[in-house]
Amino acid sequence: MAIIIPPAPLPLRDKKVRLRDPSQENTSKWTGTSKIIGLPGAAEWLVSGTFASISDEAKARPWRAFFVALRGKRNAFRIRVGLDQQTAVGNPTVRAGGSAGLTVPLQGLPASQTVLEAGHLMTVTLPSGHERLVCLTASLVSDAQGRATATFAPELGEVPQAGAAVEIQWPHALVRMSDDTNGWEFSERIKHGFAIDTKEAK
């Protein structure tokens, strides 16, 4: 799998971001009570949307090349999922002692402040090369040494290495197209239309 770089941030007119978090439900035939068991590592992000129409043939060509270069579902690309999250704060890195679960220790943050709030997003680089998008479920508050522990969902699925990159300025999902058939639409007035329907590229 190669990571294909789009010619510009995807000019999506609308964007849908969904998290599929599978579980197994066991229901008693006698009492009707249920027990639901999560499946750690099985969660995946789904992102879809449509482009604003492109009326200029020259501007449409790089996007045609991008979609063809994806080779259906074979290759991946990054898509930004946050709105206006870029901050003056630099990106932190992972501290030693991480886990594959729902927390990760960070370093390199500004000292003694709330850096991000619950609901903000981060992208954590994992040993396999995957870039895992997570959503904070608690505010990220640093100590006097610029360290903090991020609490989020879904699970990372791998233990990140100390020093691994963590993107908080422009969080993104690493995705691939959901279908083998990709393309575009255009009218007689050369208004090109592109759309994406993707899932996380693990």
Rank of each mutant, 00 (worst) to 15 (best):
I4K: 06
K199A: 06
R71L: 13
K35M: 13
P6L: 11
P9I: 07
T27K: 15
P6C: 09
L109T: 07
A111L: 06
K15P: 02
P154V: 03
I36T: 15
L46F: 06
R78S: 04
E167N: 11
L133G: 04
M1N: 11
T31M: 08
V124Q: 10
R20S: 02
G32T: 11
T149L: 05
I36H: 06
A111E: 07
D143W: 00
K199Y: 09
F77K: 05
A76R: 09
R189S: 15
A148L: 05
D197N: 14
K59S: 04
C135Y: 04
G82D: 15
Q113M: 14
F67K: 01
D197K: 08
W30I: 15
K73L: 08
K191L: 10
Q86Y: 09
A76E: 02
T151P: 04
T50P: 04
I168C: 13
G32Y: 12
A150R: 01
E188D: 15
G183Q: 08
I36G: 02
K59G: 01
A42F: 04
E57Y: 13
A58F: 15
A76Y: 07
M1I: 12
T27C: 13
V81M: 06
R78H: 14
I36P: 07
K16S: 14
P62T: 10
G90C: 04
L70W: 04
L126N: 05
I5M: 12
R147S: 11
L121W: 02
K73H: 06
N26R: 15
A42L: 00
F66L: 08
A100L: 02
H172D: 13
H120W: 10
